[in-house]
Simulated assay, not measured.
Amino acid sequence: MTDPLSQAAELIASADDVLVCAGAGMGVDSGLPDFRGDHGFWQAYPPYERLGLRFVELADPVHFVEDPTLAWGFYGHRLDLYRRTVPHAGFAVLRDWGARVFTSNVDGQFQRAGFSDVAEVHGSIHHLQCVEPCTDDIWPADDVVVEVDPETMRASTLPSCRNCGGLARPNILMFGDWAWVPDRSQRQLDALTEWRRGARNLVVLEIGAGLAVPTVRRQAELASAASGALLRINPREPEVRHGRGVSLPMGALEALTALAALTGATGPGRRTG
């Protein structure tokens, strides 16, 4: 019986197109926290444990209205963290395979690794919008620097809306978000849908997507429904339903490094047989 890694490598080598559906686990090997549960979040951000604040409480747009220095303390720190993070070598493997990307991550790591076709279903921390919002305008946060006190995790500088001068916020879909402007993400999703219509012999790599927020898993299962060519890379929740796919209980970097070694020059679209 073929072992799962070899089976996965065969699917990749025989594919014409590759879709990556990535959750927070994709960035763990780059040193990024995945915020899995309160304990994982507090490990990454000890000051919030002292303050008794959980991730779901901080990732709430109400704070940008009621307590903006707290809100921007959290998101400003993350913005700086993501800017300083170097994507691990697994990103380069996927790029070499010519993969398209669907992700719930807002960290911009795929773009940093050289990808141009990325569908960010929950938005991006590297783009801003008005808190109100006064318009549907979305603009890059390239010039924004948010100073954050490491003890209180509060921001001393607050970004402004470039249209009305009021408070700006990240263009990220938060919990219970009534004001998120989805236009940028929708354009990316529309482009992905158009690409999928023309994709042939598609293999889907789902990487680091857990059950807590099932957006990525749903997309991966739908995209692979016709062929069953789903590779689920997840060290904690790797099971596939009804045998419709290959389960790889591994981290992203370990799995992608192993698959790259097995496929070699016969990656997607480069079959030699």
Rank of each mutant, 00 (worst) to 15 (best):
E151S: 09
N201E: 10
G76S: 03
V20D: 10
I138K: 00
F91V: 09
R241D: 13
Q7E: 14
R187D: 06
R217C: 00
A252M: 05
R78K: 13
A191N: 14
G40T: 14
G251V: 11
R83M: 02
L5F: 15
L51T: 12
V56N: 12
L192M: 08
G165I: 12
M26F: 09
A15I: 02
L222P: 04
G114N: 05
A220G: 13
A223S: 13
V146H: 14
V181R: 13
L189M: 15
G269L: 00
R50Q: 09
W139Q: 03
A261K: 09
L11D: 01
C21L: 07
L81E: 14
D80R: 15
L230Q: 08
L205T: 02
E66D: 08
A71M: 05
L205M: 03
E239Q: 15
Q43C: 03
A261W: 01
M153A: 04
N163G: 14
V56H: 11
G176S: 12
A191G: 06
C164Q: 08
L248E: 10
F115D: 11
S247A: 15
L19G: 03
V121M: 11
P68M: 10
V121T: 05
V146A: 11
N201T: 14
R169K: 15
P133T: 04
F175K: 12
W195A: 13
E206Q: 07
A209K: 04
G123W: 12
L158D: 09
F102Y: 15
G165V: 11
G208N: 03
A89I: 04
I12R: 01
A252W: 06
A252Q: 02
Y45D: 09
L94A: 06
V86S: 12
S156W: 00
A44G: 00
R236H: 13
G31D: 02
W178F: 10
D96P: 02
Q129E: 15
A209N: 04
H88F: 11
G31H: 11
E132Q: 15
S227D: 10
R95Y: 07
D143C: 12
G23T: 12
R270P: 09
I138A: 07
A99I: 10
V65I: 13
D142W: 11
A168L: 02
L94Q: 05
R217P: 00
A155F: 00
Y48A: 03
T135N: 06
P4E: 12
R244I: 03
